[in-house]
Design a binder for these strands. Structure first.
Lengths: 200, 200
DNA sequence: GTCTATATAGCGATAGAC
DNA sequence: GTCTATCGCTATATAGAC
């Protein structure tokens, strides 16, 4: 019962974080969206930062599910990385990816003490990191790039501003935007030899 | 005299925007950094949004200078694009690139009415857009990518979170970080045929 | 646990003297 | 134009009744 209510709260927080971000989201809005009083909210979560942390935990749990589904598939490490990046881009375009400002120190402090958050980040990172080194060994990911750089670059797709800008331009639908951004992320802006063949 | 004072204000705003972002920057901090009273600040700029707009105009003027320097050089369109992206990454890493939240509506509304800001954005975009189509015609930039996608992807390097994360990891210096991020932006994460040769 | 009502504080912006 | 002092508002968080 209490769990159901808290789920509703987290879903509302998630939506508002995706829509306006942490700084512009107000606790009053969250309470209004859930349909309860603000004081009741604070019976479930100690602070605004705790609300954001709970939303991040939720999306990381979803991410871990996606990761484990890929792990159980027959896809190659490179294909798995693309699949996770594709999922993150879809989440972002459908306003379901909460984005937190990396600059807000009070929020960072709370997240760094949130054990479940840290544990989930570590679990996801370990799976992705494993895929990255394997994909590099197979020659699918550039073996000269530091694995951390590859990992952060994929993580950054979750808060990439390009999809939203492309969407507001209105010339592409969500599927097309995701594929374009994936193409620039993994393929780069520069032409490849295969591009020359395709263009010819 | 008034111009000198306003320059000092804009420089302070620029630094604070780069450090904490618009929402966490307070007008009191700006006044303290400049060394004047807050009320005096408001004699020069009508609002906090106007302060941010002035900082954006300043950095866009610098960007336009970089663009025109490249235009006057003998570099190829592709090399010019790389050079501008490199400049933006250096500005970001040295805490001189003001980053504005795309979600803040009051700020967006003010910027969309700021003629000089819009004019500068347009000028820079026209130069970059010209280079992009030329680089595509020369086969240096993937001709299958929409030019707008390429433009936004390059603009996004100015607020890419990856450089700061790599820097905080502490394993690379600024020069190396810039080159790694440029490599992923233009070359992509996936291996190229030339990578296979280099790795062998 | 839920509510109404309120405490507390920070911030953007202004008044008014000099 | 600069200052001190303050207004007015909003937002986080809490008190206390039910």
């Amino acid at each position: 019962m209490m769990r159901v209510r808290e789920d509703a709260i987290i879903i509302a927080v998630n939506r508002l974080l995706a829509e306006k971000g942490f700084d512009l989201m107000t606790v009053d809005e969250v309470a209004a969206e859930v349909g309860i009083a603000k004081a009741s909210l604070y019976k479930h979560f100690a602070s605004k930062e705790a609300l954001a942390a709970a939303a991040m935990v939720r999306v990381l749990e979803q991410a871990l599910t996606v990761v484990k589904d890929e792990e159980a598939s027959s896809a190659s490490p490179m294909e798995r990385l693309r699949a996770v990046a594709r999922w993150a881009l879809h989440m972002q375009l459908s306003q379901q990816m909460p984005t937190l400002p990396s600059q807000n120190s009070s929020l960072r402090a709370e997240l760094m003490q949130h054990h479940r958050y840290l544990d989930l980040i570590m679990q996801v990172s370990e799976h992705l990191g494993d895929w990255i080194v394997k994909a590099q060994a197979m020659g699918h990911i550039d073996p000269q790039l530091p694995p951390d750089l590859v990992l952060y670059t994929i993580y950054a797709r979750a808060c990439d501003p390009v999809p939203a800008v492309l969407k507001s331009a209105g010339r592409f639908n969500d599927e097309q935007i995701v594929e374009w951004v994936l193409a620039t992320c993994f393929g780069g802006l520069a032409a490849r030899s295969s591009d020359a063949r395709a263009a010819a």
